[in-house]
Nucleic acid binder design. Sequence first.
DNA 1: GACTATCTCGAACGGTGTGCGAGTCCTTTG
DNA 2: CAAAGGACTCGCACACCGTTCGAGATAGTC
Lengths: 234, 234
Amino acid sequence: MKDWIWTRERKASPARETLSREQIVTAAMAILDTDGVSGLSMRKLAAKLDAGATSLYWHVPTKDDLVDLLIDEVWGEIDVPEPELAGWRAGALLFGHSLRSAVLRHPWLPEVMYTRPSIGPNAMSLGERGLVLFGAAGFSDHEIDLAMGSVMSYVLGTVSAEVATREMVRKSGRSEETWVSEMLEQAQAVANDYPSMQESVRRRTSATLDTSLTENFVFGLDALLDGLESRVKR
Amino acid sequence: MKDWIWTRERKASPARETLSREQIVTAAMAILDTDGVSGLSMRKLAAKLDAGATSLYWHVPTKDDLVDLLIDEVWGEIDVPEPELAGWRAGALLFGHSLRSAVLRHPWLPEVMYTRPSIGPNAMSLGERGLVLFGAAGFSDHEIDLAMGSVMSYVLGTVSAEVATREMVRKSGRSEETWVSEMLEQAQAVANDYPSMQESVRRRTSATLDTSLTENFVFGLDALLDGLESRVKR
DNA sequence: GACTATCTCGAACGGTGTGCGAGTCCTTTG
DNA sequence: CAAAGGACTCGCACACCGTTCGAGATAGTC
């Protein structure tokens, strides 16, 4: 099929002090977290490591493969509680929050995540632990997959949208509050023909952006988990 | 704040037969649908229109703005039933399916959607009609926003993941069946240390990719709607 | 016929990912 | 100790990208 980047390893010990894949991944992660996808270029990455741009290509076959490694790195940061600790429902809630905060830490993820499959070792381990957690809930075998997939999709979808608005605030250079008020004003003007939209916008003026986004996330996750719970086989 | 592309309009009638924004959008949509984001370049787009590459810049300020227009075009394809027709729950289900199939028709959307806000006219109208639909369900004012947001996020998250796997099949050049069997074989080998994953993989061998993805989507959406329904104020 | 607004477009700039081949170091072997 | 060969670095070059600039062409108005 294809030989994945994850299976490649060093065959002998390095001849001298040398670049390493680990170093490259770490540096690339730093660039990505602060400058986003558009801020990551092979030349810039190499410069950060005091190396020639093309030296990187000895350690990493391609930029896309490097991004694959970085994505898997993020999957490695996510907690999946074992069901014995707090039960299924609490575990799923914890998992969701852990997933959300990992994505918020790495806001470049939604932009690249949906263009490739996740089959790195950390993604695998995450899947395994997730299936164990949902398996303990009492779903039928088949529904274990469905339930876990639904939760992951909901969380990733919600937090992807969340990241989009948060990045917009960041790029605007304004503070959160002034951005919100400016945005509301703008929206009011545009939404004149849309009464429901206008009301919705007006409603949002009371809360801060942060609490509003969190509440949004929790509300849907709770509802979804409610729905899933009622599907547990009896 | 910024003057959005949508508000610009022609001030006088065109001097002669000329390129139009509409033409450009149509051609760009065709390229995007068949070749994806990486296949769309200004030069290629211009060539398709028998024009010079830089001519486009008179009609569209920037490539990013063009993509904004294309995204809004997609939002325009989505049905949101009025609640009187079939009630809230059936309407939300219909809305979800319409949203899903629109994204499947334009698989490049997830890649670009999460990097910008959606504030074009079609997005606005979509939001308006969505709020009307969810408003008819009997949620409290505040929960209308939350409920609709949850459904949109779930659908977009799920279908984004779905698109990722479908695109992978397409790019592999294999048929759906052979791809699935090859992938399962591969996964079996990789997932040796992960018993739950292995079982999950084995479970999937029975269904076709298409029915499996659809079932996945419907299962979670139903669960979420169940959870939302129980939150309707009494 | 002159003027102006609308529109087209070739040339060029500064960026991008990456293939190629020469070169440098260090370990292993004879 | 010399030779060989693997491990690794990197400058050059290529094709492509989005976009700016300024010169031109076209058509309607006075």
